[in-house]
Simulated assay, not measured.
Amino acid sequence: MTPDVTAWLARCPLVAILRGVRRDEVEAIGDALVAAGVVILEVPLNSPEPVESVRRLAARLGDRALVGAGTFRREAEIAAVAEAGGRLLVTPHADPALVRAAKARGMVAMPGFMTPAEAFALLDAGADALKLFPAEAGGPPMLKALRAVLPKDTPLLPVGGVDAQSLPAWRAAGASGYGCGSSLYKPGDTPEQVAAKARALIAAL
């Protein structure tokens, strides 16, 4: 059964984007994030050995976290991540075919978009949530305008430049969640550093 992304976002609206994470550190970082309260974890496919990192996270965290990958471009990548235990697809762009392929495997689909045309096409393909990317290009006013025309129950998550300082403005504009990259994890960060960043972001909410 497909995980309920709304329920996961209700537990914690932050999505940890672990770009550049290594497989030998990913479990300790995953433990630190979940202990701090962050339960949606994305390993971008332009990280080292991303499928293996997804496999390790999924096996270690089980139902304590929604684990998946981002930066998908091809359907074969979806198959590999799903077989590794990944349950979440995130893309930087609007590709309805990838959404349909993810939904066929029972995954949560959170594709990227920038325009209303892209948003409605992705929703029609079965997207569970939409990622506004790059969010800093339009800022909270853009999200507020999009929220006015999209279905009210559509989870919208700004990604790109989201940090503790900008979170309140995004929340006021109608964000359902927040994709956090460098404000939560940068290559070389220790699990302790990641946990401290997670606590700061959660406090900003």
Rank of each mutant, 00 (worst) to 15 (best):
A36H: 02
R22D: 12
P168K: 07
V5N: 00
R23D: 14
P191R: 02
L18N: 14
E25A: 09
I78F: 12
A16Q: 01
E136Y: 07
V99A: 03
V90K: 07
L184I: 15
R147L: 09
T71Q: 05
L123S: 08
E83Q: 11
V194A: 06
A204D: 03
A16E: 01
R105S: 03
G139F: 06
G30T: 08
T190N: 09
A119P: 00
W170Y: 10
L123H: 06
V54Q: 00
L66F: 09
A10W: 07
T6S: 11
V43M: 06
A175W: 03
A16K: 02
D4R: 08
Q193E: 15
A196C: 12
L130F: 10
G86T: 05
G85N: 02
P50N: 02
Q165V: 15
V108L: 07
G68D: 02
M110W: 09
M114Y: 09
R60M: 02
P48G: 10
A117H: 10
G20C: 08
M142H: 14
D124H: 08
T190Y: 10
L14I: 15
T91N: 10
G37R: 07
V81T: 04
A125P: 03
N46H: 13
V194Q: 07
L18P: 01
P3M: 11
M1W: 05
D124A: 14
R147W: 07
L123V: 10
L57Y: 02
G30R: 03
L167W: 10
R147P: 02
A32P: 00
E83H: 13
P187V: 01
I78Q: 14
R64E: 15
D63S: 15
V38E: 01
L184M: 15
V51T: 15
E25S: 12
A59F: 06
V15R: 02
G106N: 13
G139C: 06
A109N: 04
A135S: 08
G106T: 13
S182W: 04
G30E: 03
S182I: 11
M1A: 14
A94W: 01
K186C: 13
A127G: 06
P191D: 03
V99P: 00
G138N: 04
G37K: 09
C12V: 08
D124R: 12
Y185E: 00
A164Y: 11
L9K: 05
V5K: 03
L122E: 01
R55L: 05
A129N: 05
A32E: 03
V34I: 11
L88V: 13
S176H: 03
V21Y: 03
D153L: 08
I78T: 15
A200S: 13
A76D: 15
T2A: 11
G179P: 00
K197Q: 14
E75F: 08
L156A: 10
A80Y: 13
I202W: 06
G30A: 12
M142D: 05
L9T: 04
R73K: 11
V90R: 01
P116V: 11
I29W: 02
I78W: 13
P44E: 05
D163Y: 07
V21E: 00
A164I: 09
P111A: 10
T71F: 09
